[in-house]
Amino acid sequence: MAEQVALSRTQVCGILREELFQGDAFHQSDTHIFIIMGASGDLAKKKIYPTIWWLFRDGLLPENTFIVGYARSRLTVADIRKQSEPFFKATPEEKLKLEDFFARNSYVAGQYDDAASYQRLNSHMNALHLGSQANRLFYLALPPTVYEAVTKNIHESCMSQIGWNRIIVEKPFGRDLQSSDRLSNHISSLFREDQIYRIDHYLGKEMVQNLMVLRFANRIFGPIWNRDNIACVILTFKEPFGTEGRGGYFDEFGIIRDVMQNHLLQMLCLVAMEKPASTNSDDVRDEKVKVLKCISEVQANNVVLGQYVGNPDGEGEATKGYLDDPTVPRGSTTATFAAVVLYVENERWDGVPFILRCGKALNERKAEVRLQFHDVAGDIFHQQCKRNELVIRVQPNEAVYTKMMTKKPGMFFNPEESELDLTYGNRYKNVKLPDAYERLILDVFCGSQMHFVRSDELREAWRIFTPLLHQIELEKPKPIPYIYGSRGPTEADELMKRVGFQYEGTYKWVNP
Rank of each mutant, 00 (worst) to 15 (best):
R9M: 15
T10S: 15
V12H: 15
I15H: 06
R17V: 04
Q22V: 08
H27R: 15
H27W: 12
S29G: 08
D30M: 08
H32A: 05
M37N: 10
G38P: 04
A39R: 00
A39T: 06
Y49T: 00
W53T: 03
F56R: 02
L60V: 10
T65K: 02
T65G: 02
A71I: 01
R74T: 15
L75D: 05
V77A: 10
A78F: 13
K95Q: 10
K97I: 14
E99N: 09
E99R: 12
F101T: 02
F101K: 01
F101A: 02
S106A: 08
A109S: 08
Q111D: 15
Q111L: 12
D113T: 14
A115N: 05
A116E: 06
Y118M: 05
Y118G: 05
N122A: 15
N126E: 07
A127W: 05
L128T: 11
L130A: 10
N135A: 11
F138G: 01
F138E: 00
Y139C: 08
L140D: 01
L142S: 03
P144Y: 00
A149Q: 13
V150W: 01
T151H: 09
T151Y: 06
N153L: 13
H155R: 13
E156G: 13
Q161T: 14
W164K: 08
R166P: 02
R166G: 08
I168M: 07
K171C: 01
P172M: 03
P172Q: 03
F173Y: 13
F173D: 03
D176Q: 01
Q178P: 06
R182N: 15
Q195T: 10
R198C: 05
H201V: 00
Y202W: 03
L203R: 01
G204A: 03
K205L: 03
E206Y: 06
V208R: 00
Q209M: 06
N210K: 03
L211V: 14
M212F: 05
L214Q: 11
N218L: 01
F221N: 05
G222V: 11
I224W: 04
D228T: 07
C232V: 05
V233Q: 02
T236P: 01
E239D: 11
E239T: 09
E239Y: 02
P240W: 10
E244Q: 15
E244K: 06
E244F: 11
G245N: 14
G245L: 09
Y249G: 00
Y249H: 02
G254P: 01
